[in-house]
Computed example of a mutant assay.
Amino acid sequence: MSASPARCTRWAAGSAVTLALLFAGAATVASARSDGAAPGPRTPSARSADAGFARDMAVHHQQAVEMSFVVRDGTRDEDVRRLAYDIANTQANQRGMLLGWLDLWGLPKTAPDGQGPMGWMPGGGHSGHDTHGGHSTQGKERDGALMPGMATRTELERLDEAEGEQAEILFLQLMTDHHEGGVAMARGCAGQCTVPVEKRLAQGMVEAQQSELDLMADMLAARGAAPRP
Rank of each mutant, 00 (worst) to 15 (best):
residue 1 M to V: 12
residue 2 S to P: 13
residue 3 A to H: 08
residue 5 P to Y: 02
residue 7 R to E: 14
residue 8 C to T: 08
residue 9 T to L: 09
residue 9 T to P: 00
residue 13 A to W: 12
residue 13 A to M: 13
residue 16 A to Q: 13
residue 20 A to Q: 14
residue 22 L to C: 07
residue 24 A to W: 01
residue 25 G to A: 09
residue 26 A to K: 14
residue 26 A to E: 09
residue 26 A to W: 14
residue 29 V to H: 13
residue 30 A to T: 14
residue 36 G to L: 10
residue 38 A to M: 12
residue 40 G to R: 02
residue 41 P to A: 15
residue 46 A to F: 06
residue 47 R to H: 11
residue 50 D to I: 04
residue 50 D to Q: 01
residue 51 A to N: 07
residue 53 F to D: 00
residue 53 F to Y: 15
residue 54 A to W: 01
residue 54 A to I: 10
residue 59 V to T: 09
residue 60 H to C: 12
residue 60 H to E: 08
residue 62 Q to I: 06
residue 66 E to F: 01
residue 66 E to Y: 01
residue 66 E to K: 03
residue 67 M to Y: 03
residue 69 F to V: 12
residue 70 V to K: 02
residue 74 G to A: 15
residue 74 G to K: 04
residue 74 G to E: 05
residue 75 T to I: 08
residue 76 R to P: 01
residue 76 R to L: 12
residue 76 R to E: 12
residue 80 V to M: 00
residue 81 R to L: 01
residue 81 R to C: 03
residue 81 R to G: 01
residue 82 R to P: 00
residue 82 R to Y: 03
residue 83 L to V: 02
residue 83 L to P: 00
residue 84 A to H: 00
residue 85 Y to I: 09
residue 87 I to N: 02
residue 89 N to D: 15
residue 91 Q to A: 07
residue 93 N to F: 04
residue 93 N to L: 08
residue 95 R to K: 15
residue 96 G to Y: 06
residue 98 L to K: 05
residue 100 G to E: 04
residue 101 W to S: 00
residue 103 D to G: 04
residue 103 D to C: 04
residue 104 L to T: 13
residue 109 K to L: 11
residue 110 T to Q: 14
residue 112 P to Q: 06
residue 114 G to I: 07
residue 118 M to R: 14
residue 122 P to G: 11
residue 125 G to P: 14
residue 125 G to I: 02
residue 125 G to A: 14
residue 128 G to W: 04
residue 129 H to C: 10
residue 130 D to N: 12
residue 131 T to L: 10
residue 132 H to R: 08
residue 133 G to T: 07
residue 136 S to R: 13
residue 136 S to A: 14
residue 137 T to K: 01
residue 139 G to R: 05
residue 140 K to N: 09
residue 140 K to D: 07
residue 142 R to L: 13
residue 142 R to K: 15
residue 144 G to H: 05
residue 145 A to V: 12
residue 146 L to E: 13
residue 147 M to R: 13
residue 149 G to V: 01
residue 152 T to I: 12
residue 154 T to F: 03
residue 156 L to D: 06
residue 157 E to T: 15
residue 158 R to V: 07
residue 159 L to N: 03
residue 159 L to E: 03
residue 159 L to A: 07
residue 162 A to Y: 08
residue 166 Q to F: 03
residue 166 Q to A: 15
residue 167 A to I: 09
residue 168 E to Y: 06
residue 168 E to F: 04
residue 172 L to T: 03
residue 173 Q to R: 15
residue 175 M to S: 10
residue 180 E to A: 14
residue 181 G to V: 10
residue 181 G to R: 01
residue 182 G to C: 10
residue 183 V to G: 03
residue 184 A to P: 00
residue 185 M to N: 02
residue 187 R to I: 12
residue 188 G to L: 07
residue 189 C to H: 04
residue 192 Q to M: 15
residue 192 Q to V: 07
residue 196 P to E: 04
residue 197 V to W: 08
residue 201 L to T: 11
residue 202 A to D: 06
residue 204 G to Y: 02
residue 205 M to D: 02
residue 209 Q to C: 08
residue 211 S to W: 01
residue 211 S to K: 10
residue 213 L to M: 14
residue 214 D to K: 13
residue 214 D to E: 13
residue 217 A to W: 06
residue 221 A to H: 11
residue 221 A to Y: 06
